[in-house]
């Protein structure tokens, strides 16, 4: 049930992207719509432009992280380091821009590059040194958390001297073109990343091997494919996507917060799982992950706007994760 397969039959890539999800993701998508309707009925303040944009904005960072980890999960692996990796990339970005005063594009590339490098390291631990992904990335998670604190001197790095940096996430190109639709650039970037990664997954060798490794790694190896190298490539790519998330969060906060990041990996993994990606590997789509991430943030925002006590918000989020995965399992039976 690879995306590429259905995509092919329908011709156009975008048609394929939607079509491949259509059948499989109907349920998740319907749940999302139900949530939106439910909250609209629950609070008159929920369904307003500014709140919808707030929801999208809240999805942007977790969404990009979830897209990155989707790749790893499709290979049958897991990446626990994405949260702190994101922070690490933000800090590196801060070092380049604030400490060294380099131009903005250099800082952005450095942040993304740092992610790619971290992914490369995780990939090497997993593919070459045969350390189980759970352990390898648990180690990376702690290493990167520590390094972020060390490099930043345990203080937030502010980007006040880099004008325009905060526009990466907070600005709105769409709002300039279409007045009255001030969708932040962070959200735009989330969707661009989603489209880009969906393309890579369905249309490139890297994507094909991502599914193949998750489906049957040994068969890939015995097909004469340099499976280790591709696995490292996938982790590197996922790392670069985390790097994008790092730049996004740094821009949104206009600062690199070195202590942040722990816990984000679980939230991203939850979004991936709600989106129907199997933790056993071999299956999953970016559209699903995107919907999963949206469900999470609609739920959080909606419960807040309805002024539900915070303790119960947490309970509801947990229940939704279990329900969503249960529904997905029932569908596959």
């Amino acid at each position: 049930m690879t995306a590429s397969v259905d995509a092919k039959k329908e011709g156009g890539f975008l048609a394929g992207l939607i079509k491949s999800g259509a059948h499989q993701k109907l349920l998740a998508f319907a749940s999302l719509i139900m949530l939106l309707i439910g909250f609209s009925l629950g609070s008159p303040n929920f369904m307003q432009m500014s709140n919808m944009i707030a929801i999208l904005q809240a999805t942007s960072v977790i969404g990009v992280l979830a897209i990155g980890v989707t790749l790893i999960i499709i290979t049958g692996g897991i990446d626990l380091s994405i949260g702190t990796m994101m922070t690490f990339c933000a800090v590196i970005c801060g070092v380049f821009l604030t400490y060294w005063g380099l131009p903005l594009p250099v800082g952005v590339v450095a942040g993304i590059g740092a992610g790619a490098f971290c992914g490369f390291c995780s990939g090497t631990f997993v593919a070459k040194m045969k350390i189980p992904p759970f352990i390898a990335t648990l180690g990376m998670m702690l290493i990167l958390k520590g390094l972020s604190l060390v490099i930043s001197g345990t203080r937030p790095i502010y980007f006040n001297d880099t004008p325009g940096f905060d526009k990466i996430s907070r600005g709105s190109l769409i709002g300039e073109v279409i007045p009255g639709l001030p969708i932040p650039n962070g959200v735009l970037i989330l969707f661009l990343v989603a489209i880009g990664v969906a393309y890579v997954l369905s249309r490139t060798v890297l994507g094909r091997y991502t599914y193949a490794l998750g489906s049957n790694e040994e068969a890939v190896r015995l097909s004469g494919v340099n499976a280790d190298r591709w696995k490292i490539a996938i982790y590197t790519f996922a790392g670069a996507i985390c790097g994008i998330a790092g730049v996004l969060i740094a821009s949104r906060l206009n600062s690199a917060q070195p202590a942040l990041g722990l816990g984000y990996e679980l939230e991203a993994i939850a979004a991936v799982v709600i989106g129907g990606t199997s933790l056993a590997g071999g299956r999953g789509t970016i559209l699903g992950t995107l919907i999963g991430a949206l469900i999470m943030s609609v739920l959080t925002n909606g419960l807040r706007v309805m002024s539900v006590a915070q303790e119960w918000q947490t309970v509801a989020t947990g229940a939704i994760i279990i329900l969503a995965v249960y529904a997905d399992m029932s569908r596959k039976k």
Partner: peptide, 11 residues
């Protein structure tokens, strides 16, 4: 060892 059984014939 031979097939990625959840993938299609072409893949």
């Amino acid at each position: 060892y031979g097939l990625a059984i959840t993938m299609d014939v072409a893949a």
